[in-house]
């Protein structure tokens, strides 16, 4: 009971406060990959907490129903008798709520994944008829007066560039754009974006929406950094300005220029890396966030084992 309540409180704290470690923090733009790690500690910790709550209740409920035979089970029972004695119904209610939330998360993840897969398949099939491979440059060229470049993950991945965007960029700028998109594909950035997106969709809370937006920004910055290892910063910056400029007549392309502005300023003036100590501390926090629910869950098991041995 106590452990369940602690897990509940911990999970709620992680969901509400965890995002504050990274979302909207200036430090993330100087270390986008570390930022991504911290951002994903939140879903990892929250899902651990919820899953443990559901699992622990399942063990205790099972004991109420069935005859208990062997030692291992007896251990669990002893734990639960001691840990849950006053409030079995409350425990069950908490556990059920956790199980419902877990199911909801899994279903949201599944439907989000299948809708993304469907869109990608439609894109691939549609592009197969109109896209023309650019000779050996590894992208699909689409005749369009709209300026855009994007990557389509799945089945090896594919980069799509419009003829208008191609015209707008010189060779090095285009190469930098392609390197940026390749970084998305090799880094499986779409999967990262999808994780926090599923969490924000399943649990509609403002901090989680902020977390999702942060991840969407950080994958772009991480891809920018990767591209800058091969190509000139200036080239990428110019490409960003050319393709992100208003009046590109791209109906449908969302206007969310603040992200573009942040990326451009960052490319123009690379900020100082954080000191190693600070980065290490952040990593430690992320690790602790994920491990804590498991430690909490281990408490009753440990109690049971020691209790049985001494008895």
């Amino acid at each position: 009971m106590l452990v369940l309540l602690l897990l509940l409180a911990y999970t709620v704290c992680v969901l509400l406060l965890g995002p504050r470690l990274a979302a909207g923090r200036p430090w993330t733009s100087s270390a986008p990959r570390l930022g991504l790690v911290i951002c994903h500690a939140v879903p990892a910790a929250a899902v651990s907490g919820v899953a443990l709550m559901a699992a622990m209740t399942a063990v205790s409920v099972q004991h109420v129903r069935a005859d208990v035979g062997h030692l291992l089970h007896a251990c669990a029972v002893a734990v639960w008798d001691s840990a849950t004695h006053p409030g079995v119904p409350v425990t069950t209610a908490l556990g059920l709520a956790a199980a419902v939330l877990l199911t909801h998360l899994v279903r949201t993840a599944a439907s989000s994944a299948s809708s993304a897969r469907r869109t990608r398949r439609e894109q691939r099939e549609g592009l197969a008829l109109i896209g023309h491979g650019s000779d050996g440059d590894g992208y699909t060229r689409v005749t369009s007066e709209q300026r855009f470049a994007y990557c389509l993950p799945g089945e090896g991945g594919r980069i799509v560039v419009s003829t208008a965007a191609e015209r707008e960029l010189d060779d090095e700028e285009l190469a930098a754009v392609l390197a940026h998109e390749r970084a998305h594909l090799t880094g499986r950035h779409h999967a990262l974006v999808q994780i926090t997106q599923v969490l924000a969709n399943a649990v509609p809370l403002a901090p989680l929406r902020a977390l999702r937006a942060e991840v969407a920004t950080l994958v772009e910055m991480a891809a920018d950094d990767r591209a800058c290892r091969e190509f000139d910063r200036e080239a990428l910056l110019t490409a960003l300005l050319r393709l992100g400029a208003p009046g590109a007549a791209t109906p449908g392309l969302a206007v969310n220029g603040s992200r573009t502005v942040a990326r451009a300023l960052r490319l123009a003036e690379p900020s100082q890396q954080q000191p190693v100590s600070q980065r290490a501390a952040l990593c430690a926090v992320a690790g602790a966030m994920v491990i804590t629910p498991w430690l909490l869950g281990a408490v009753p098991v440990a109690l049971a084992v020691t209790g049985h041995c001494s008895a």
């Binding site: 990608r120 855009f148 990557c151 389509l152 779409h190 393709l243 969310n256």
Partner: peptide, 13 residues
């Protein structure tokens, strides 16, 4: 941000 099916190079300012 609501759809992660594909990633665009840039968002319009």
């Amino acid at each position: 941000d609501t759809q992660a099916a594909l990633l665009h190079f840039v968002e319009l300012m």
